[in-house]
Amino acid sequence: MQLYRTLGKKLVIAIGVLACFGLYSCSEITSHKTLFFAHSLPITHPVHKGILAMQEALNEKSGGKLQIKIFPDGQLGTEREVLELLQIGSVAMTKVSAASMSSFAPEYRVLGVPYLFRDSEHMFSVLEGKVGKELLEGGSEYLLRGLCFYDAGSRSFYTLDGFIKTPKDLNGKKIRVMNDQMAVNMVNRLGGSATPMAYGELYTALQQRVVDGAENNIPSFVTSNHYEICKYYTVDEHSMVPDVVVVGTKFWDTLNDTEKEWLQAAADESVEKQKKYWQETVEEGLEIIEKANVEIYNPDKSLFVEKTKPILEELKKDPVMKEIIDEINNQ
């Protein structure tokens, strides 16, 4: 019965979006194309602001011939559901975590490895270089072409009761993670009990103590209002999983070369602005949580690095993953 309900929901979403596309497909009459861009974040989030920058840049570069209509706040479904809508051509674009992309394009798994990047500068030198380009273009094999990476900061633990000063403090704690095997392995390896859960369900789960905590970046911690409940934020920065702007190849292939250039250029232009928005939001977020009496702790990261090393070593048994990891380490 649950399967039918899930399939029914996706069918309703797809039919609804296709109906909307019908309203915007009159390019002969309106002389423009509209790209439906769906994502799960609130409009106050710095990633949404980056998408707005892309929207503006594309409108300017195309002279209004190629436009973006944004559906935020999970209006068209979860990250996974929207990626599936891209694959069948019902939605043109989305923004998802690289962790979500790894369920469709396996090479993205590497970006979820704990402590893979030395810092944000190292991360973006990788993402904007050869490795990043290959990952973005490689998604086309799965009908999901990446256009660019957005800053999603570093992810750390936040909890209801006490700091995670060492991995031992995770023992017996249920920690919400994304529905991503790498995140599950990381929390379990550190001694916690990984609990995959939809992001939209987390606030209530924390309120009702279904989980003891979660892990995310500062802007998401604030915009989700999780800081109202969790008063302990441990800056262990266990992962730097970027966001990915993705266009479905079903839609991409309908664009001519000039339109593709406009779209890629608008995406590239929005990256630097999104990074700026991100930093501003982190600073604002720190002020907000300080006023809300959230305590912050900076642990000895080496203890966490050591406990999670087997995840990296296991992934390197795959020759493709080893090659990517070696390129990242050598950069």
Results as ranks from 00 to 15, higher is better:
I218S: 04
Y199E: 12
I43Q: 10
E201Y: 08
L23F: 12
I13G: 01
F37D: 09
S120F: 09
E280F: 01
E313G: 08
T159Q: 11
H122W: 08
Y232L: 14
I324L: 00
L135F: 09
V222P: 00
P114L: 11
T234W: 04
D243A: 15
D119L: 02
V245N: 04
L144A: 10
G129W: 06
Y4M: 14
Y150R: 11
V245Q: 02
S100E: 08
I218F: 03
F21E: 10
E280A: 11
K276V: 08
L315I: 04
M93V: 09
T234Y: 02
K49M: 11
P114H: 11
E56N: 08
L58I: 06
G132P: 05
Y150L: 10
L303K: 03
C20P: 00
E79N: 14
K322M: 00
S154Q: 12
E228P: 01
L86T: 03
F104I: 02
G22V: 10
R80G: 10
L83S: 03
V211M: 07
L35G: 01
V177T: 13
Y115S: 00
L190H: 11
A266D: 09
L160D: 05
T34W: 00
I288S: 10
I324P: 02
G146N: 09
E60Q: 12
L85C: 06
L11C: 03
I88C: 13
T94I: 06
E134A: 00
E280P: 02
I288P: 03
F104R: 01
K301N: 08
K49T: 06
T223S: 15
G162R: 10
I43K: 15
V12A: 13
F157H: 13
G162D: 11
D253I: 01
N293H: 14
H122P: 04
N225V: 01
F117S: 11
V82K: 05
G172I: 00
L111S: 07
A19G: 12
K10Q: 13
E327A: 14
L11M: 12
Y203M: 07
G162I: 08
L66I: 02
V247P: 01
Y158T: 03
K33Q: 13
Y233W: 15
S90G: 06
Q331V: 14
M123W: 00
V211A: 13
I175T: 04
N59E: 11
T308N: 02
K61S: 10
T78I: 03
K61R: 14
R145S: 02
V113A: 13
K275V: 05
R109W: 06
G132R: 12
S224Y: 07
K273Y: 09
Y115P: 04
Y150E: 03
M178P: 03
E283K: 15
T44L: 03
F21T: 12
V211P: 12
G139F: 10
Y142A: 06
K322G: 01
K95P: 00
F37A: 05
L160Q: 08
T44G: 10
